[in-house]
Design a protein around this nucleic acid. Structure first.
Lengths: 226, 226
DNA sequence: ACCTGAACACCGTTCAAGT
DNA sequence: ACCTGAACACCGTTCAAGT
């Protein structure tokens, strides 16, 4: 499978494949070189170093998110869809959380996404600092969900269910945790997670909506930055 | 500085020091061995491998969080304090986000923290699945803040402000982002972040409080799990 | 029970040398 | 302008051998 010359896009694409398969640790310049039929070190000419390559890959995947025009659907539907679609993207690329936690990712992909976020909450009626606040609150919720989901994924990657069993044993020594474990024992973990996600999402949107009506304690905070 | 024998606590303590200084990547078994005046490989006998050591360190730091009795202060004050204190802990240990994103951390430290979370929202009046929902929503907010803060920290670690300048240039090609950049140009980034944090926190607590009064769209979600 | 040292199979990155 | 190969300074981990 010969090719003219290497280029950035092609390298980033291959890197994303490797990242999806094996995570940040599993992406090595030597493995990447092999996949591209070139010397591992040839990649350096195009992307600088591994850190920068991870940043390029991380920014790229933000471009996969579908942007729904809030004018057609109403802001809350668009806001909900945006959070859900972002979460789906993160699930396709579980390495993204680690990438973001160790690198500053703010390229074209992120800018496109952020600009749309602003469009959604602008359509809701927010302006100025409140607009920043609303966008940021929703984004924080997605980020949190992604991070918690990454932990969960790490748990199922762990050798056997040994780790989970040990966690349960420890939790059982605390009264409230034991009570919840017993109450939730029958529920499928995946379904549980998705219900918690839905609950959290609507709760956050409710908080944002209350702010829109000038209600809620969040109102007082705004006075700080007048 | 001689010592009897190595032990787990001592190793985890030294590991946290190294993690605070240089992150997960900067923690190497050889460096750790040097700090403990022992062969790098001696550590393996006590903690298994590096992954498990990171998990032990990550669980340990959850124990640093102060737990405020909600009976004395009211649930909202206790909930707010818990989020703020957790965030402060994460700022002291910036590697925690990466550790959690790649490992399943559910030891005694986490259990203690989680049990207290349940106590706070139980004091607010939540029970059953709503209690899980409230605890999880608040925790998701802290997790998201931590992840976003890690990115920010990675930005300031990056060589010069080159990266940030480049990010601004890209953002400026989007109308809404450019507008916000111009509007916020004068504001100190650290102060901005802390105001967004306060806004988000109160917004999320407002959403949770609305749920407590049986208001809000989050109510409908609860029906799904009856 | 606890520790050491050598060894193995990897890494990311630099750089002179090639075309 | 783009690529190669050797080389350097690291990694995590295993394991026989020691006490």
């Amino acid at each position: 499978m010969p090719r003219e010359t290497l280029n950035r896009d092609q390298i980033v694409e291959a890197a994303i494949e490797l990242l999806d398969e094996a995570g940040v640790e599993g992406l090595s310049m030597r493995r990447l070189g092999k996949r591209l039929n070139s010397a591992a070190t040839a990649v350096y000419w195009h992307v600088g170093d591994k850190g920068n390559l991870v940043v390029l890959a991380a920014d790229r995947v933000w471009g996969e998110i579908e942007l729904l025009d809030p004018a057609g659907t109403g802001w809350r539907t668009a806001a909900r869809a945006l959070v859900q679609d972002t979460y789906a993207m993160v699930e396709r690329h579980p390495w993204l959380v680690q990438a973001i936690s160790t690198h500053f990712v703010h390229g074209p992909g992120m800018a496109r996404f952020q600009n749309h976020s602003y469009a959604v909450y602008e359509a809701a009626g927010f302006t100025g600092r409140d607009l920043d606040g609303a966008v940021n609150t929703a984004f924080t919720f997605v980020a949190g969900t992604a991070l918690l989901d990454a932990t969960r994924a790490a748990a199922s990657r762990a050798k056997s269910t040994d780790v989970a069993a040990q966690a349960d044993e420890i939790a059982a020594t605390y009264p409230r945790l034991r009570e919840r474990m017993e109450a939730l024992g029958d529920v499928d973990p995946a379904e549980l997670f998705s219900q918690e996600f839905a609950f959290g999402l609507e709760t956050v949107l409710d908080g944002i909506e209350a702010r829109l009506r000038g209600e809620g304690a969040a109102h007082a905070v705004r006075e700080l930055s007048h």
